[in-house]
Computed example of a mutant assay.
Amino acid sequence: MTLCGNYTGSLPPMIRTGQNEAIIQFISDETRSIESGFRLEWSATGCGGEIRNHPVGVISSPNYPNAYPLNIECLWHIYAEPGYRVDLLIEDIDIELTHECTYDNLQVFSGNNDRDSPLLLKQCSRAANIHVSSYGNEMTIKFTSDLSNVQHGFNATFRTTERGCGGTYFTDQGTITSPNYGGGNHYDPKTDCSYRLLAEENFEIELTVNDYDIPRSINCSASYLAIYDGFFDESDSVLLAKFCGQLTQPSNQALQFRSNNSILSVRLFSDGLHS
């Protein structure tokens, strides 16, 4: 929209951007001007975003406790410190009730996206005090509404707590273990831990597997330890190895792997039946 001249009557219509950025350009030429210029007001509206390394916080639907808007999609990505998990308490939720929550719904995923991360919760209708926890240190929350019938929405509190697993590591060296490793302890029966190891550009990563003890299954499909060259959840990653059972190399010799670039990822998955 381009404006010039004087507005002495009704103001121009409200302008709404289609994304999270707006550019306003004011131009004048060399002619002497005695006009007073302009004044405008703006406000940012929307929902979702990234939340990194905040130990506690609040997430709610737009306009809560009033009715949420029609036809919206909000995505929140919560990232805790490595070794922590995300606990979410949905204190109040009031969303249009439909069969299988087809239209309006709140979904919670254990991971950094809503495509292939494990689904923890899909909720509509009215409820209170629903608690879910991520398997690792990442959680994605997705709120969707359609073109009709809105309710009050939801209000939730998240908190990061120790005892989680997974995370992103930028250090030159380190050690990662499954939750509760050592001393005869077991990790949780239902576990999905993703460790992302990052090095400087043009560097490679060397990984040594010293020990593993994971329930056996056909093709290691139920529970496994997997190592990927690249991020495991991206299409161009390469599966380097997938283990279940116990480390049975001669004299328990360690297994070594090397990335082709600066990214290596490790995933520990358990189907909830064994640990």
Rank of each mutant, 00 (worst) to 15 (best):
F257Y: 14
Y224E: 12
V108F: 00
E201T: 08
I218N: 06
R258K: 14
A44S: 05
P13G: 15
R216F: 11
I78G: 02
S125I: 11
D29G: 14
Y195T: 01
A226Y: 12
R267Y: 15
V238K: 04
Y169Q: 08
I130T: 15
R85V: 13
L3S: 13
I90Q: 00
G37I: 01
K242C: 08
S217V: 03
G174Y: 06
S43W: 06
L75I: 10
S33C: 10
R258V: 13
G9W: 01
N260T: 12
D104T: 01
T102Q: 15
N261C: 08
I205L: 05
Y84S: 11
V266R: 11
M14S: 08
I24P: 11
T31F: 04
V209E: 07
Y212G: 07
S178P: 05
N180K: 11
H186C: 15
A22P: 02
S28Q: 10
D172I: 04
T140Q: 02
P82K: 07
Q123R: 08
L70E: 09
P62M: 04
C193I: 02
N66M: 06
F269W: 05
N113D: 00
T8D: 09
D92N: 15
S110P: 06
G46F: 00
Q19D: 04
C4Y: 12
I227S: 02
F203L: 11
Y212Q: 04
Q249D: 15
L197I: 09
V266I: 10
I59K: 02
S262T: 11
S223E: 06
K122N: 04
E200G: 15
S133Y: 12
N210Q: 14
G153D: 06
R258F: 12
P65K: 10
N66W: 11
L97H: 15
L121Y: 04
P179L: 00
W42H: 08
G230L: 01
H77Y: 10
T171N: 09
T140P: 04
L120M: 11
A22F: 07
Q173L: 12
V58E: 03
E81H: 05
Y84F: 06
G182R: 12
F269Y: 14
K142I: 01
L75E: 09
E100F: 11
H77N: 15
L264I: 09
Q246V: 07
D87I: 03
D87F: 08
V86Y: 08
S178H: 03
S110V: 05
S117E: 06
L197A: 02
V56W: 15
